[in-house]
């Protein structure tokens, strides 16, 4: 008996067209393209800059880029947590400046209490602890205003941007604070096991927060809040507490960035960290974190920060005017958001 298979074939094609091998391959390819878009973008960027500049693929430049992006990585990791909850933190640049200034001020001048003929000096450890605590407190204040008074994160952190910058000016009197000691400078310029200390610091930050976001309750709560805040509330998550913790962590990480910047320059500059929030947001968005929250990874943000760092470095090596550099960076961020939106729609 001969079976006529030609009559069956069209039926299969009609009912399950996506299961043909060619369609599957195209879908897989597209899936991988979306999944690894940041890596592909980084690879292409490096290839183009490497072709145009002889100095790009050198060891010295590689470490230089890594050292520069370590600050942005610290800030961006905090920004990722905030954006994952559906918020935004525009104050990180100013918080970075104030935390760095507080540490520098305490290390160089301590606290004087003339009424008691007392001088309280701060060791390196003391200065670092107080600086990080300052960043965390300012971040916690952001979280408190957002959750307690329902102020939109954009407005609350914009206010903190101005407050922290003003506090920095008051603390420094508008002048740099310098002479911070060799021990502190090592944080920004030193090497450990052949790798710059700032790179070690950012690596510790990245690994720690990868663990927090993937292996802890807090991490799951952060994703839940960003995915659907009402559902998260109904499932018993303390939204206020989590948000305050997230903004505190973002402030603390901005302070870590502030310590690196201050140590690198061996001085706290009153205008340090100016517009750093934009680079951090850019890194987060380029890294694939959704601005509406609930979707994104720390590793993606690290890739985003590397792309921004390589882009900055490449534009300098190619002698592009600083004004054009800003235009290019803006376009890259815009493209990243457009890609994010279109990929969200497709999903």
């Amino acid at each position: 008996m001969i079976t006529d298979t030609s009559t069956q074939q069209p039926e299969i094609t009609k009912s399950e067209p996506a299961k043909t091998p060619s369609n599957n391959t195209a879908k897989d390819f597209r899936h991988y393209l979306v999944k690894f878009q940041s890596l592909i973008a980084l690879f292409l960027l490096c290839a183009v800059i490497g072709l145009l500049s002889d100095n790009f693929f050198t060891v010295a430049n590689g470490w230089n880029v890594m050292r520069q992006i370590s600050v942005n990585i610290c800030i961006s990791v905090g920004m990722t947590l905030v954006i994952l909850t559906g918020g935004i933190d525009l104050s990180v640049g100013s918080v970075l400046a104030f935390s760095g200034a507080v540490t520098a001020g305490l290390l160089s001048a301590g606290i004087e209490l003339p009424a008691f003929d007392l001088f309280i000096g701060f060791t390196l450890l003391g200065g670092i602890i107080v600086g990080m605590a300052t960043g965390s407190i300012l971040g916690a204040f952001n979280g408190w205003t957002i959750t307690r008074f329902r102020v939109p994160p954009f407005v609350a952190t914009l206010a903190m941007l101005t407050i922290a910058r003003g506090l920095t000016m008051l603390w420094t009197n508008g002048f740099p604070i310098s002479g911070l000691g060799e021990g502190f400078v090592t944080i920004g310029t030193g090497w450990f096991l052949g790798i710059p200390v700032p790179v070690w610091i950012s690596a510790v930050v990245v690994v720690s927060f990868m663990m927090i976001t993937t292996k802890t309750k807090l991490g799951r709560y952060i994703y839940a809040i960003g995915g659907n805040e009402n559902a998260a509330r109904l499932s018993g998550i303390n939204i206020k507490k989590v948000k305050i913790i997230v903004y505190s962590l973002a402030g603390g990480l901005a302070a870590v960035g502030g310590l690196i910047v201050t140590a690198r320059l061996n001085s706290a500059q009153p205008n340090a960290g100016f517009s750093y929030e934009l680079d951090a947001i850019a890194a987060v968005v380029i890294g694939g974190t959704s601005l509406s929250g609930g979707r994104g990874t720390i590793l993606g943000t690290v890739l985003g920060a590397i792309i921004i760092g390589v882009l900055n470095n490449g534009l300098v090596l190619l002698d592009v005017s600083p004004f054009w550099q800003q235009v290019v960076k803006g376009i890259v961020i815009l493209l990243a958001v457009i890609i994010d939106k279109s990929s969200s729609k497709n999903q």
Binding site: D117, L118, G121, F122, L125, I129
Partner: peptide, 15 residues
């Protein structure tokens, strides 16, 4: 331990 290693006290006039 952290506090002990974080701060130190001196006479302001001497400093």
């Amino acid at each position: 331990f952290i506090l002990y290693n974080a701060v130190y006290f001196e006479k302001l006039s001497e400093v």
